[in-house]
């Protein structure tokens, strides 16, 4: 009998990894490196790239808009990260039991995360509509004669985007935290209970420290996602009114695919990348102070 040709395990591993690795290289890592190079070019997609040195970065620093967009991104993160993680934590703790109804509520809270973003955002747009919206008619019914123009008032537009984003994502974070909560040994709680610790004390002294690793992961995830908000902004406010809800990811899209200024958009994307990287580094630095390994 003829002996089958032998493939070395290394080659086999490379072959199996190749489809994902090539995809990652071509569609992720390649563009990441390429866009860094592009940030030093003046390139309208349909034109020839022209070397521009640091011009794009200088333009961003001198732009009358870019500073506001950076601040909007920061403000959004400040609303979104504590909002989504806080609500997710409360929901996870409330639903961390074996009651039958809990499964239903877990599913219900997770549902927004898997529904079409644009579709649900359009529904929210009707809810927020100034004159004919559900929310304002409800508020009027409760006696607020002049409720805000949620999506057209600069003070409310970004918080409105944050509300929808929190509503959409907190179910996902809840699920991650629930997984963490399931690993907490109930005997800790029982012992604390016997020692007379109340529910709040047990939550802060036992639950939070024991799920701190999950919490840290969710926090980093929420932070990164807060800088990537795009679809909801696009469908809800279009970045308005007058830039009040334009965050960096949206501004990158606008410059790349509306104005086709790829060099400028790449430079913006890299500044965003640096900002997120720095915040993540700071988080990792403080990690050992509160995360129990």
């Amino acid at each position: 009998m003829r002996k089958r040709p032998q493939i070395s395990p290394t080659l086999l591993a490379v072959l199996f990894l190749a489809p994902s690795a090539i995809g990652l290289l071509v569609f992720r890592l390649g563009p990441i490196v390429w866009s860094f190079a592009l940030s030093f070019y003046d390139w309208r997609i349909f034109d020839t790239p022209v070397w521009a040195g640091l011009d794009n970065y200088v333009h961003i620093l001198n732009s009358p808009i870019a500073g506001r967009v950076f601040l909007n991104t920061l403000w959004f993160a400040m609303l979104y990260v504590p909002g989504s993680v806080g609500i997710a934590l409360v929901l996870a703790v409330l639903l961390n039991n074996s009651l039958r109804s809990s499964a239903f509520f877990r599913g219900s809270f997770f549902l927004p995360y898997i529904t079409s973003t644009v579709a649900v955002t359009l529904a929210w747009r009707w809810i927020f509509s100034t004159r004919f919206g559900l929310l304002n008619n409800l508020l009027k019914g409760l006696g607020w004669s002049d409720p805000p123009a949620w999506l057209a008032d600069p003070a409310w537009a970004l918080p409105s985007v944050a509300i929808v984003s929190i509503w959409k994502d907190c179910g996902f974070y809840m699920l991650l935290l629930l997984a963490g909560l399931q690993t907490v040994d109930p005997t800790f709680h029982e012992a604390a209970k016997i020692d007379g610790a109340g529910p709040l004390k047990r939550f802060w002294q036992i639950t939070v420290p024991l799920i701190s690793r999950s919490l840290f992961f969710v926090l980093i995830l929420a932070l990164v996602r807060s800088t990537q908000t795009f679809e909801i902004t696009y469908a809800l406010t279009g970045g308005g009114p007058n830039r009040a809800s334009t965050t960096l990811a949206y501004y990158v899209y606008e410059n790349a695919f509306v104005h086709f200024d790829m060099g400028y958009a790449s430079a913006l994307a890299y500044l965003l990348c640096i900002a997120v990287g720095l915040v993540t580094l700071v988080n990792f630095h403080f990690r050992r102070r509160w995360v129990h390994e």
């Binding site: 808009i65 057209a152 600069p154 696009y234 406010t237 279009g238 970045g239 308005g240 009114p241 007058n242 830039r243 809800s245 334009t246 899209y253 606008e254 695919f257 509306v258 104005h259």
Partner: peptide, 13 residues
């Protein structure tokens, strides 16, 4: 998609 900014956004303000 840039309709909320530029001259449009300022006039609306």
């Amino acid at each position: 998609a840039a309709g909320s900014g530029g001259m449009n956004g300022e006039i609306d303000e």
